[in-house]
């Protein structure tokens, strides 16, 4: 089982978290066509990206930088008011 050190929580197994998407900037204008792209399009190639991780037991959200090619965690910070995708 994989573990990592989380701010506020300490060392926790990954299985306690649900991962709910990627932190990506919202497009400046959302027309019909750009909205469809925004809703559906993904960049699913091996890369580093920042993800929303939710810890159900403590109801805390984190922003986790992860390499999707090697499954390595590179940075973890608590999500704050104003952190948005």
């Amino acid at each position: 089982m994989k573990y990592a050190d989380f701010p506020l929580l300490g060392r926790r197994p990954f299985t306690e978290f649900s991962i709910s998407g990627v932190l990506e900037p919202e497009p400046a204008e959302l027309g019909e066509w750009t909205a469809a792209r925004w809703v559906f399009e993904r960049t699913s190639v091996p890369r580093e990206r920042v993800e929303w991780w939710y810890h159900g037991a403590s109801r805390l959200w984190f922003l986790v930088r992860r390499d999707t090619g090697s499954d390595t965690i590179l940075a973890i910070e608590p999500a704050r008011t104003g952190s948005r995708s």
């Binding site: 089982m1 299985t15 649900s18 991962i19 699913s44 190639v45 091996p46 993800e51 992860r66 999707t68 090619g69 090697s70 499954d71």
Partner: peptide, 13 residues
């Protein structure tokens, strides 16, 4: 598996 991953690793979980 619960998260995107470009790997064919298998897990004990």
């Amino acid at each position: 598996d619960p998260a995107e991953l470009h790997s064919r690793r298998s897990s004990f979980e």
